[in-house]
Design a protein around this nucleic acid. Structure first.
Length: 673
DNA sequence: CTAGGGTTAG
């Protein structure tokens, strides 16, 4: 066999080197065709150094030699190198042809180099080389990556000939930008033209289906993958699973998972995030442990990050510590992704000490690690420490990003440090060129609102250059609630309600506002329209970890396996704190009911159930840690203070925003939340 | 004779 035909088949380094040696010893190293092919083989294997070496030994390089090098770099995602070679080629006087152009265009797209990309496009048009499906497809891909979906579409429409790749690039452009409908529209057009679906079409459609609300579209795509046979492939199955997990359809994801012959670490991890997202935390932990026992599955950083975030969300400190031990054992302690997840887990479990210990021990910290540590301090009410960390971060040469400022601003807000917060906000733009987004505005609105400067907050929101979103209105609303400005509160919740009439959370907010104003008619109306729309709000729940086992309680839940145990403990607890002076705050029940019913509802808030259970199941003196998915209500907050005093227990409650540490009748938030 | 456009979990 000739060297040339052997080279076409060689895909690995060692045989490649043998052929290379043989070419040299046969005195063929100046043969341009062979050298080009050899360089290309090295490039295909990802060995750009070797490819470059061959390239430099060619004394009479032609346009093909240059193109091979350029496309080699581009294929290996070394886009800057590809561009450097391209520029050098041009200075040497070589004119790029259609193949060179189609090889270099992805580099501009991937690096966000709009200007150069456009000028190369112009160059190509000026050359008058006529239509070329490769170049045009590469142009569509480049404009898509650069964020110009409209331009991409115009190039696509102008093509005289389109093959499957062009269709796929355009469809995945739409799905990348969340334009699911447009993606499917194009897909229908493609089918009408009789173009056959391939693997890439299927993958793009799966990802497009996740940005379309209509569930039938998703089912349709799933059917398509079965009909075309692509569903048998591992990548397609994982993509489908991912879609189901992200849409919170865990059962559907589980069906695919169970049906997989080969369950790889990606599939296991997807299922894990599914359980975690759906807040099936015990299932998540169980699933992770099962995965660890499977022969041939190596946990990677993504899987570890997944289980850690599950522990973090549920407040499962003991489980989290076990995972930390595993992280050390498997050598992921220096991984920054795992690291920031560890910090997040510890701080979310109110264990700032271990978070700090780990954080200080990290040799390399990326911005996410700093952010996690700053956020952790903020959540625990340590505003000054958060600012100190922010300054240290600056000193260590790490540039803050958008979320850094969110973390610092929230820390100031929780600690009531209004001036410091405003100072940082104003420096954000001036010194850091970070343009404030709606999260930043929400933080500042929260900062001002909490401090009682509601008017300033309202002015800020009305004068900012963005449309206020849910977070911003929520910040204003909670300030209205704290400071009893019901009038403004109603005005805001009605606005929010008009903005998104299909969000159950908005109904609840509006209803609560009416209740605070004593407008029970308004409460009734919102509740009725909520029911008529069949919207359901997330139920409130609290969880507590005892001996590594996680117990979750929902407000008023009667079918709980520990119901009788908890009920007994609860009654006892209520009597004891009442003796100490606790008076139920029936204003916290935002419905028009009799006082008896209101008290019954109050006593069965999930927080109290979990605490009563914890008091019964743990030894005297043990700290009780509760994680809940809503913010603490006034009554539970006051009850916790009494419980900490009467039972001589430290109680740590994590709500959606921050930690409350109750000791001897006092809360660390100083009743400011 | 040698080269080309598009993919999966945080």
């Amino acid at each position: 066999m000739s060297h040339a035909s052997i080279l076409l088949q060689v895909k690995h380094l060692n045989p490649l080197k043998q052929v290379h040696a043989s070419i040299v010893t046969s005195g063929l190293s100046q043969n341009i065709f062979l050298s080009n092919r050899l360089a290309n083989s090295y490039a295909q294997c990802g060995l750009m150094d070797n490819a470059e070496q061959i390239f430099h030994r060619i004394s009479s390089k032609n346009i093909v030699s240059w193109t091979i090098l350029i496309s080699g770099y581009a294929k290996n995602h070394l886009f800057m190198d590809a561009i450097n070679v391209f520029n050098k080629m041009v200075t040497y006087g070589f004119l790029p042809n259609e193949i060179t152009i189609s090889s270099i265009l992805p580099a501009f797209g991937n690096l966000g180099l709009t200007q150069i990309g456009k000028s190369v496009h112009c160059f190509w048009v000026r050359c008058g080389n006529g239509a070329n499906v490769f170049v045009e497809t590469a142009l569509v891909g480049m404009y898509s990556k650069l964020g110009y979906a409209g331009v991409a579409r115009r190039v696509f429409d102008s093509m005289s000939e389109r093959n499957i790749v062009a269709w796929n690039v355009m469809i995945s452009c739409y799905s990348d930008y969340g334009f699911g409908e447009e993606g499917f529209g194009l897909f229908n057009l493609m089918r009408r033209e009789g173009v056959h679906v391939d693997f890439f079409t299927v993958m793009s459609l799966i990802s497009a289906s996740s940005c379309v609300e209509d569930l039938r579209i998703g089912q349709g795509v799933h059917c398509l993958t079965v009909r075309t046979g692509f569903e048998r492939g591992q990548l397609v199955r994982t993509a489908l699973m991912d879609r189901y997990v992200n849409g919170n359809h865990i059962e559907d994801a589980n069906l695919i998972f169970n049906d997989m012959h080969v369950k790889d670490v990606v599939a296991w991890t997807l299922m894990l995030t599914g359980f975690s997202k759906g807040q099936y935390w015990n299932k998540a932990i169980e699933h992770f442990n099962e995965m660890m026992r499977v022969e041939g599955i190596e946990v990677d950083s993504v899987a570890l990050t997944g289980i850690l975030s599950s522990c973090s969300d549920s407040g499962a400190l003991l489980q989290g510590k076990r995972v930390h031990a595993l992280v050390e054992k498997r050598g992921f302690a220096c991984d920054v992704f795992v690291g920031s997840a560890l910090i997040d887990m510890y701080t979310n479990c109110a264990n700032l000490e271990d978070a700090r210990k780990y954080f200080e021990g990290m040799e390399e910290k990326d911005v996410a690690c700093w952010n996690a540590m700053i956020a952790g301090n903020g959540m625990n009410g340590h505003g000054n420490d958060a600012i100190d960390l922010f300054l240290r971060m600056k000193g260590s040469g790490i540039n803050p990003d958008e979320s850094t400022f969110v973390c610092v601003l929230y820390a100031c807000s929780h600690a009531g440090m209004v001036d410091q917060g405003l100072h940082i906000f104003s420096h954000m733009v001036k010194s850091w060129n970070v343009f404030p987004n709606s999260k930043h505005y929400a933080c500042v609105a929260d900062l001002l609102g909490r401090a009682g400067r509601l008017d300033d907050a309202y002015i800020l929101v009305n004068s900012m250059p963005l449309l206020p979103d849910f977070d911003i209105y929520c910040a204003l609303l909670s300030a209205c609630k704290i400071h009893g400005n019901i009038e403004l509160g109603i005005k805001i919740s009605e606005k929010l309600f008009q903005l998104e009439p299909n969000d159950a959370g908005h109904y609840v907010l509006l209803s609560n506002m009416y209740a605070l104003a004593g407008n029970w008619e308004g409460v009734k109306m919102t509740r009725i329209s909520l029911r008529s729309k069949r919207l359901k709000k997330d139920p409130g729940f609290s969880s507590i970890e005892i001996n590594g086992e996680l117990y979750t309680f929902m407000a008023g839940q009667k079918d709980h396996p520990q119901y009788y145990e908890v009920e007994g403990l609860l009654q006892c607890m209520i009597i004891r704190i009442q003796e100490a002076g606790y008076v139920p705050d029936t204003r916290s029940v935002l419905q028009e009911l009799s006082d008896d019913v209101k008290m019954d509802i109050l006593y069965h808030h999930s927080e109290k159930l979990a605490i009563a259970f914890g008091l019964g199941r743990t030894k005297p003196g043990t700290i009780i840690r509760i994680t809940k998915n809503l913010r603490s209500c006034n009554d539970c907050h006051s009850a916790c203070k009494f419980i900490s005093k009467v039972y001589e227990r430290e109680i740590v409650v994590k709500d959606t925003n921050r930690f409350h540490v109750f000791q001897e009748g006092v809360c660390s938030c100083r009743d400011y939340w």
